[in-house]
Simulated assay, not measured.
Amino acid sequence: MTFTEKAWPIFEQVVRDYHKTDSIDAAVPNPFTPQTIEYDLYRKCWIDAAQWHMEDLIRDPEIDPQEGMTLKHRIDKSNQERTDLVELIDSYFLSLFHEVTPLPTATINTETPAWAVDRLSILSLKIWHMREQAERSDASADHKARSEQRLNVLLEQKSDLCGALDALLDDLAAGRKVMKLYKQMKLYNDPETNPVLYKK
């Protein structure tokens, strides 16, 4: 079984589980053992699902400004949790390949495996919601047809991304690629590097 063959069903499970309550405040019903890659993949996709719906809420043109600011801070916190979890998943891959000796011709990929995992997780949400639009009983035939076309594109992206991620992992295992983990270092989140915060 490839990595994406393991990850994709977990992401689909998260999206189904999230929509049982469809609440950004729902408790996370993670069924996997803590400190396993399956557990972290579930957590990753749950963060993405909750944030997806927070992004919907904040775009309400009639949202109360105070409520909107509270939600914006919550989205910022979620973004940091998402980044931290991506780096944790990359640590898993670093550990997985730490004994591999890179070939003299080995190259570095443009993104780490976990950032591809991040895109795959979000893609699972796009597919679920686009399918929902394609099947809406209250939508026009044109809307449903456009949504169906977009869904087909997303499904193609899923196939391409799964293939590319699995190929990258094969290359890392064979020493054809090398992996480095660069922390995101988001300056605006750090009170020592954000001038608005450290000048207060």
Rank of each mutant, 00 (worst) to 15 (best):
I127A: 06
Q66M: 08
D40W: 14
I127S: 07
M130Q: 09
H129D: 05
Q51N: 15
K77M: 14
A116E: 12
A145I: 09
Y182K: 09
A116C: 02
S159Y: 07
E148S: 15
V100H: 05
W128G: 01
S23W: 00
I127W: 12
V117M: 02
S23N: 14
V117Y: 05
E5M: 06
M179E: 06
Y18H: 00
I10M: 05
P61M: 06
S137H: 10
D138Y: 07
Q13R: 11
V28S: 06
A134Q: 02
W8P: 04
Y18W: 04
V28P: 03
F32N: 05
V15R: 04
L197M: 15
D171Y: 01
L96A: 07
D64P: 03
V153Q: 11
M130T: 05
S137I: 14
E192G: 03
N152C: 05
M69E: 14
R16L: 06
V100R: 08
A167F: 01
R146I: 12
D190N: 15
D60H: 03
E12F: 04
M179S: 10
A114I: 03
P195D: 14
V100T: 07
K126S: 05
L169V: 02
P113Y: 02
L187H: 09
T4P: 04
I37E: 09
S124L: 01
D142M: 05
D118V: 01
Q51T: 15
S124C: 12
